[in-house]
Structures are given as structure tokens and as C-alpha cells.
């Protein structure tokens, strides 16, 4: 039961997704992203795809012929913008806001481009690999 994976250039995302929608993919289940800044080596990309720092991952589901398809879109670090899927699937609204909040990827045409999880005045995008975990050293008072 493995899902099919499609590598889609950013410019063709809308076209691909609307094609999939006509093919019976009724819902977008998930929109997320990965920051490949510290990944030691990516081998799972097809040769014609240039690896970029960010990858947007969109998962769609078809109910008629049960199955999922996963779209992987490369997003460069110096221009982290992607067209929004809101017009095709309104359910992506919150998911895209989360990606924008956590990774700083801008969704062009999104109706509500505000932070969703972090406070509005927060600086930085926590799930980027160059954002520190924020761990503070634990003190064991008993052993001192």
C-alpha cells in the first residue's frame, strides 16, 4: 500500500493539482514542508529535479480508487514562494498557514497569511533547521 510520489516543478503545481482533482482526488489531506539544509545527501530525487533547500509536500487522497498521491515540490531558499492551493481545495488554508508559520514559505494568494501557531510578534520560523531547538540546560539540584 505505498503511495505514488510525483515530483512537480513549482510552476506546474496548480496545473497538476487541478488535473488530479479532475481524476477523482477529492481531498487534500496534508500540506507540509521539509527543510533539507542539513541533510547529508539526497538520493531519492529524479535526475531532472534540482534539489533545493525547502520541499513542499502535498498529500491528496482518492476515494473512488482508494489511494494517495504525494506531490513533492522543490522551493529555493532565496525565493520561498509557492502558489496557494486554496482556490482548488479550501481545506488547505490552515495547513498552508502552518507551513508559512513554521518554515517561512510564502503562499501567494492565500486569503489569510498570518501566523497560526506562534504568537503574531514571534521572530523566526521554528521548524527551519537553522532555528535552534531552544533547549535550556537542565540542572540537577540534588547532585550539586
Amino acid at each position: 500500500m505505498s503511495d505514488s510520489v510525483l515530483h512537480v516543478p513549482r510552476e506546474e503545481l496548480i496545473e497538476t493539482v487541478s488535473g488530479l482533482r479532475d481524476d477523482g482526488y477529492v481531498s487534500v489531506l496534508d500540506v507540509t514542508a521539509v527543510d533539507y539544509l542539513e541533510h547529508p545527501g539526497r538520493t531519492d530525487l529524479p535526475p531532472e529535479t534540482t534539489p533545493e533547500r525547502f520541499e513542499l509536500v502535498v498529500t491528496l487522497i482518492s476515494h473512488a480508487a482508494p489511494g494517495r498521491v504525494r506531490l513533492r515540490v522543490q522551493v529555493p531558499a532565496d525565493d520561498p514562494t509557492v502558489p496557494t492551493l486554496f482556490d482548488l481545495y479550501p481545506g488547505t488554508e490552515a495547513l498552508e498557514r502552518e507551513v508559512a508559520d513554521m518554515f517561512g514559505i510564502v503562499f501567494e494568494g492565500h486569503p489569510d497569511p498570518t501566523r497560526i501557531l506562534m504568537p503574531p510578534d514571534w521572530e523566526g520560523h521554528p521548524l527551519r533547521k537553522d532555528f535552534a531547538v531552544g533547549r535550556i540546560p537542565v540542572q540537577f539540584k540534588a547532585t550539586r
Partner: peptide, 23 residues
């Protein structure tokens, strides 16, 4: 499963017109 439903686009348009969401 019955998948004969309106397409999502009509839905998006309707949603914008109705604008249930306070932005």
C-alpha cells in the same frame, strides 16, 4: 463510496461568497 459530489471549485467560490471565516 459515493464520490459523485460537487467539485471543490464551486465550493471554494461559494465559500468566498458566504465568507463564513472572519479574516
Amino acid at each position: 463510496p459515493d464520490t459523485t459530489v460537487e467539485t471543490a471549485t464551486d465550493e471554494a467560490v461559494r465559500r468566498r461568497e458566504d465568507s463564513a471565516v472572519l479574516r
